[in-house]
Design a protein around this nucleic acid. Structure first.
Lengths: 236, 236
DNA sequence: CCTGCAATTTGCGATAGCGCAAAACCGGCC
DNA sequence: GGCCGGTTTTGCGCTATCGCAAATTGCAGG
């Protein structure tokens, strides 16, 4: 089993309040693996045999309906955990995780969780914190879907992605992994057509520059204004 | 401080794996309070000084936008916790809690949480479990809002309420607390008008019986069918 | 029993966004 | 360098749902 360098992960929220020795012990239970771009890490409905910590790359968590429609639950950035089905007492993964870029993850067997939590209670506390934060974000998303129109929801979604995984350029902020119109549609509860139309509009106003699976926010500040505009406040 | 009877709460998920003595100690830190119907327990944005366990009654948690629109985050049933801002490291409540019926709650000071968790780690684990479950439900709700039309969303929402807080009658299942069309609209991301139209329709088909703030599901099974119908599968 | 208010119902446009289909585009691969 | 497949763009009609306004109803007090 490959040795994992503790210094790379020691500062993560997950390990707050964990001593270096303890961290070492925790990491000894993990193995690491590499997933090439566009490979599935686990599938919705499969036995939750492991949970994960993303080291490099980007992972999309998506939920599929019985009829085949998908939504993107979230994009996982390096340093974040995913596949925590066990923490909530679920035997199966509630979503599918897919590497959208070449990715490297740490993997723990689900069976190790109870023991780890017993030995290192701060793991549970830290995980509670992150899960709680995600719950909040989730509620915010519901609020947006209930009260805002598509253009504002897209603006919010892109701004969040930029904050989470934005690379600063001279000309603006680039979202640091491949993302399609379809993906954005599945994050905001709309269709790829509508996303395309809106981004085209923004592009012609110079707010964004976008290509195949690639988006650069040229005028983040103006997009913030868009995001916060109420349905009736003056349009162009 | 009023003495709380441990036997009433010992079986709750929150206290799973907690010894009777420990439970006693935990309860000693709590006080209880009664909130009459339609009184606020805490307001969104206020300092999160306490967290709560509902003993009797029903509580609505709602989130308000800067522009005043509301959504119902959830209805709290007896035995459930709410106001767990501290667990996620938030200093302020992210939503407003309002008693929709005369309600009795246990109240702990937020400041007691770290100490309790340290002494009784299963509290953290148990809370993680419930927060995780809520996160899942939240994702399901997002999925529904993204992929289903209003009628199906309302069907799902009512079925969930019936499962959580339904009282069995000869004639069907009654939702056991006052709930308005407006409330249902705020749970499903639509308007009270649309909810009214749809319930009227159902009523004329004998699926439900409903009055002022009162809903009885007469044909739960048929409503399940409605809820699961895909957008195109044959309508009436 | 009567009155007043809040909740509900319903009609009637208005429209944001969907859905389908076709065309244009863009990269990567052979 | 040219071809192929997935992605994006765009036109056009359609409709589910909103928004507003007015009428109606039912409960809670007095």
């Amino acid at each position: 089993m490959a040795k994992v360098d503790t210094s790379l992960v020691a500062h993560l929220p997950l390990f707050a309040g964990v001593t270096p020795e303890a961290l070492d012990e925790i990491l000894r239970e993990a193995r690491s693996a590499r997933y090439p771009k566009n490979t599935a890490i686990f599938e919705q409905g499969a036995d939750a045999q492991s949970f994960f910590l993303l080291l490099h790359g980007h992972v999309r968590a998506a939920k599929t309906t019985p009829t085949g429609e998908q939504i993107v639950v979230r994009y996982v950035a390096p340093g974040e955990t995913f596949g925590l089905a066990m923490a909530i007492g679920a035997a199966r993964y509630p979503a599918t995780a897919m590497a959208v870029d070449d990715s490297v993850v740490l993997i723990w067997p689900t069976s190790a969780w109870p023991r780890l939590v017993e030995r290192f209670p701060s793991l549970a506390a830290n995980t509670l914190q992150t899960v709680g934060t995600r719950l909040q974000e989730s509620h915010t998303r519901i609020l947006e879907m209930s009260t805002q129109q598509v253009e504002q929801r897209i603006a919010h979604a892109l701004l969040r992605l930029a904050k989470q995984s934005g690379k600063k350029l001279d000309q603006g902020i680039e979202i640091d992994f491949p993302i399609s119109r379809q993906d954005i549609a599945q994050m905001t509860g709309t269709t790829l057509h509508t996303v395309s139309r809106i981004l085209s509009g923004w592009e012609s106003q110079g707010l964004v520059e976008s290509g195949r699976q690639r988006i650069i926010l040229r005028e983040p500040h103006k997009i913030v204004v868009l995001a916060e505009r109420t349905p009736d406040s003056g349009a162009a």
